[in-house]
């Protein structure tokens, strides 16, 4: 018995080996280094002076920008994920319907997803530029505004624009996940409901939406992780500024390390980020298991 199982396990090694190696080298080892660094005293030249206990975390909790950044990260994540799902649900429904040119529209939707986020963000940066941006030009030509507007000037306004761009980037993926969910719903169920006299809304509310739940759940959790971790949009468009007023925890960790030269404190911020992500994942596993049990 045992020998058979053992041989079975060893036999699987060539197949899972490469993946395991990648996970160990690219995921576990960096994570280990990150956590370790968060407990070390590293001066601004990059020289390590050994372990220092919790002092990096203490410095981080005394960081005057931390509370505002944490609040902003929550707003950032929730707003974007909710807006993305609310937009993607009807868009997916439209793309699921049959109409001439549907394939073209489906392709078009992939573009913002396929383009590198840095590229998309850079485009938006110039669209919104206060001096030369095309949006100013259009709005002035239409007579909607008199003078040029600095869209990325004030903290609140630029944060709002960052959210808009993040939603723009997240919608395609989410739409496709939902679309995939829609295609799994059998025509027969829908036909049966029509025969039973269900209205369009009843059909969506009581049949399609419940059956979409698994796809939706996956879409939401992957978005939560992506958006929470999102770095390029903020970095390209505002570098978290002015000051720290559009930073999230991800860009703050980067700034502490590479602008303020405090690698240890930055690692402690990154470790907290990592913990939050782990919580998201545990939550996801719990929820999906709960669904299976039900």
């Amino acid at each position: 018995m045992t020998t058979v199982r053992k041989r079975y396990r060893i036999g699987a090694l060539p197949w899972i080996g490469p993946a395991t190696a990648v996970i160990i080298l690219m995921v576990l080892y960096p994570a280990y280094e990150m956590v370790r660094t968060s407990f070390m005293n590293i001066d601004e030249t990059g020289t390590s002076h050994g372990f220092t206990g919790l002092s990096n975390y203490r410095n981080l909790f005394h960081n005057p920008n931390l509370v505002a950044v944490l609040e902003r990260t929550v707003i950032w994540t929730i707003t974007i994920v909710v807006a993305t799902v609310l937009i993607s649900l009807p868009v997916a429904q439209i793309l699921h319907a049959k109409f001439p040119g549907r394939r073209l529209v489906r392709y078009a939707l992939i573009v913002p997803w396929a383009a590198s986020v840095v590229m998309t963000s850079t485009s938006w940066l110039w669209i919104l530029n206060g001096y030369y941006g095309i949006l100013n030009r259009i709005l002035i030509s239409l007579g909607l505004i008199q003078d040029q507007v600095q869209f990325l000037g004030s903290p609140t306004q630029s944060f709002a624009w960052l959210i808009v761009v993040a939603v723009f980037v997240s919608v395609p993926f989410t739409t496709y996940v939902i679309l995939a969910g829609l295609t799994t719903i059998g025509e027969d169920i829908l036909e049966a409901s029509t025969v039973d006299g269900a209205s369009g809304w009843q059909r969506y509310r009581n049949i399609i939406f419940p059956l979409l739940r698994p796809a939706l759940l996956i879409g939401i959790v992957i978005n939560l992780i992506n958006v929470f971790n999102s770095f390029p949009i903020i970095w390209v468009m505002t570098t978290g500024g002015p000051g720290y007023s559009t930073d999230t925890t991800t860009t703050l960790a980067y700034k502490i390390s590479f602008r303020n030269a405090d690698i240890g404190q930055s690692a402690s911020m990154a470790t907290i980020n990592f913990t939050i992500i782990l919580l998201f994942i545990i939550l996801f596993l719990k929820v999906s298991r709960w669904r299976e049990d039900a």
Binding site: E44, P64, G241, P242, G243, Y244, S245, K255, R259, N260, A261, D262
Partner: peptide, 30 residues
């Protein structure tokens, strides 16, 4: 200096749009 320079670069602009003494005070503490 290099670390302080980083703090000044990020923050000092807000001294001319927000409260000068508050922003400069925060930078001095940092």
């Amino acid at each position: 200096w290099n670390s302080v320079k980083g703090q000044i670069q990020q923050g000092i602009g807000q001294a001319v749009t927000g409260s000068p003494s508050a922003v400069l005070g925060q930078l001095e503490t940092a």
